[in-house]
Design a binder for these strands. Structure first.
Length: 608
DNA sequence: ATTAGGG
DNA sequence: CCCTAAT
């Protein structure tokens, strides 16, 4: 906005333009050092990275997912090196208000901006800058981003929202301004910001907290990026995961690293302080950085979480029970999707925020007279629920005073997701000039990579749903009183094609094979899904082919399945009916058993 | 662990 | 899609 303090970076121009960003910069210098989300991993035999343990993964993943949709981040060592770890101050280090703190922070910011910029540009072209992208198209960063989600807006919008609500402070007060305030004043500000009083007398704490509340920023999402040799690279999740899966047969959807401002610090110098970094290089040359950060000021965390919009669903245990469950947040899908800016900053002491599908429950616990917000985050399975939810429901943590222990499965949040998804679709369809390119690029890459394995698919069939992130979940009440989630991701054309192809290659019934080979890129879609889909396809093909082939074309609602595909499905079906399975045995490796036999592949020649 | 079927 | 029974 106003003048951006002298930044050494070369990119200031860009963010100078962005009002939001500037504010962000001014107001959050010190907080750049946000808690980093670390993902613990270990390297297993073949160099693959694997989360240390399920629990850990789960825990971390929650965070990751959460963050991923932040504005961005990134880290290259570049200027970041200049930063000092501001974070330390929170633990009792001397304050770094004066010039040093400021300038450093500025630099840091600059670095971040720069880095993030790089990041975004890394893949596709260069053009888009943060400003435009973020403001106009939140989703541009990756498929992971969901434009509008719940209550809280992501990235820049968030800060925008907050700022608007607190113009007085944000505008001119960055750290500097806060510095000049008395404790009392700080308390005022605090109250205004968070809607509650605080008894904390620590000036620094207050400042930090406030600043955070105001800016709500400082982190970045990175899900789609990885660090390779200290460089950030955008990585096609699908693709890479695909490859990895192929190679190892393991199913690990995302191997992304989460970075946030802290990374900068850590990179710069404090790597060992509270964090440990392990850089591993896998065979693929993909390096994963993991950080373990312990002991970060709780307040900071809380603040951070508060701002995070969530898109994913939340796990909940006995949904009905928790009173803290605020209806309005979770309410109905509709509300969520379109809700403007429910300024969460005014939320009550105890509240739930659904962010990015994850629900953050903050509780105001009275701890020695201090009002402390205890953020409780529970990670939600990205993939399908491990078991049946009902089992979870039964589990009622007893004794523990922490509401935190409840796992919430949010129902509604999904609704928001759907909204988002549709949003995305719209975007895709409309495709705003600027942002579309990126998305498309990414998508097409995915497609390409996936198809490479098999045959070349015509681009016309390419659709953008190949993403890993979108899952749209709908909860359905079950007879027993439990609730279960139903994931629904529409089958894309390309998926269908792959399926068909897979069936033609390996034969219907060998779902796991098909899954592994042809569907490696789609982490969801279990073999069962494939089977089901195939069943449906068969039904469809038989049902409508005879009568009216055009039936599909005019149906807009559910994606019509191109006639040719249905045709093929039918062919395959008929064919396989005759020659069921080659029967695997020693020689089974080669499907094309025997010379003459009508191998399943016969049908294929025509296409693919 | 996969598959087939029913819901 | 989810769940379950059967291999």
């Amino acid at each position: 906005m106003e003048k951006v303090v002298e930044v050494e970076g070369s990119d200031e121009g860009r963010f100078e333009v962005t009002g939001l960003e500037s504010n962000f910069v001014l107001s959050s210098p010190k907080h750049v050092a946000d808690p980093v989300v670390y993902k613990l991993v270990r390297v297993d035999g073949n160099g693959q990275l694997v989360p240390a343990t399920d629990d850990e993964l789960m825990e971390v993943e929650g965070l990751l997912e959460n963050e991923k949709h932040e504005t961005h981040i990134i880290a290259d060592t570049g200027q970041a090196l200049g930063c000092t770890s501001n974070e330390v101050s929170s633990s009792g280090m001397p304050q770094l208000e004066s010039s040093e703190g400021l300038s450093l922070s500025e630099n840091t910011e600059a670095g971040i901006e720069k880095l993030s910029t790089q990041l975004e540009e890394a893949v596709p072209s260069s053009a888009q800058c943060l400003s435009d992208d973020h403001v106009t198209q939140p989703g541009s960063v990756g498929e992971y981003l969901k434009p509008l989600d719940g209550p809280i807006q992501g990235g820049s919008s968030t800060s925008a929202g907050c700022i608007s609500s607190k113009p007085d402070f944000s505008k001119l007060k960055g750290e500097l301004c806060l510095d000049n305030l008395s404790i009392k004043e700080l308390h005022e500000v605090f109250k205004a910001t968070f809607g509650r009083d605080t008894t904390v007398k620590d000036k620094l704490w207050l400042k930090r907290r406030i600043a955070m509340g105001l800016t709500n920023s400082c982190d970045v999402s990175t899900t789609t990026f990885v660090i390779k040799d200290n460089k950030l690279v955008k990585r096609d999740n699908e693709d890479s995961s695909n490859n990895m899966n192929l190679a190892t047969g393991k199913e690990f959807p995302t191997v992304a690293v989460e970075y946030n401002a802290d990374l900068l610090n850590s990179l710069s110098s404090q790597i060992d302080e509270h964090q440990t970094i392990s850089v591993v290089r896998s065979e693929n040359n993909v390096v994963e950085n993991n950080f373990a950060n312990e002991d970060l000021a709780a307040d900071q965390r809380a603040a951070k979480r508060v701002r995070k919009p969530t898109k994913r669903y939340i796990e909940e245990l006995s949904e009905a029970e928790s009173k803290e469950y605020s209806g309005r947040l979770i309410a109905s899908p509709k509300n969520i999707g379109i809700r403007p800016f429910p300024s969460i900053s005014h939320a009550r002491p105890a509240r739930n925020l659904s962010l990015e599908g994850r629900t953050v429950i903050t509780r105001l616990d009275s701890l020695g007279g201090f009002g402390i917000q205890v953020p409780c985050v529970y990670r939600v399975r990205r993939s399908r629920p491990r078991k049946n939810v009902t089992a979870l429901l039964k589990f009622h943590p007893s004794g523990m005073g922490m509401t935190a222990t409840f796992i919430k499965r949010g129902l509604d949040v999904h609704g928001s997701q759907m909204g988002n998804e549709s949003m995305n679709k719209v975007l895709e369809a409309k495709s705003t000039p600027e942002q579309t390119p990126q998305q498309f690029v990414a998508e097409s890459n995915n497609e390409k990579s996936s198809t490479d394995l098999g045959q070349n698919m015509e681009l016309k069939y390419v659709d953008t749903s190949g993403d890993t992130s979108d899952d749209n979940v709908v909860t359905v009440p079950t007879a027993k009183g439990g609730i279960r989630r139903k994931h629904h991701r529409a089958w894309t054309l390309s998926e269908v094609m792959k399926l068909v192809e897979g069936v033609s290659k390996y034969g219907a019934g060998r779902w796991s094979e098909i899954k592994r080979l042809a569907f490696a890129s789609y982490s969801y879609r279990t073999s069962v899904d494939l089977k089901d889909k195939w069943r449906n396809l068969l039904k469809a093909s038989f049902a409508q082919t005879p009568t009216d082939k055009g039936a599909n074309s005019r149906k807009h609602p559910s994606m019509p399945i191109p006639a040719p595909i249905l045709l093929r499905v039918r062919e395959l079906a008929e064919m396989q009916a005759q020659a069921p399975l080659p029967n695997l045995s020693a020689a089974s490796k080669l499907p094309a058993c025997g010379g003459g036999g009508g191998s399943v592949n016969e049908t294929r020649p025509g296409y693919l």
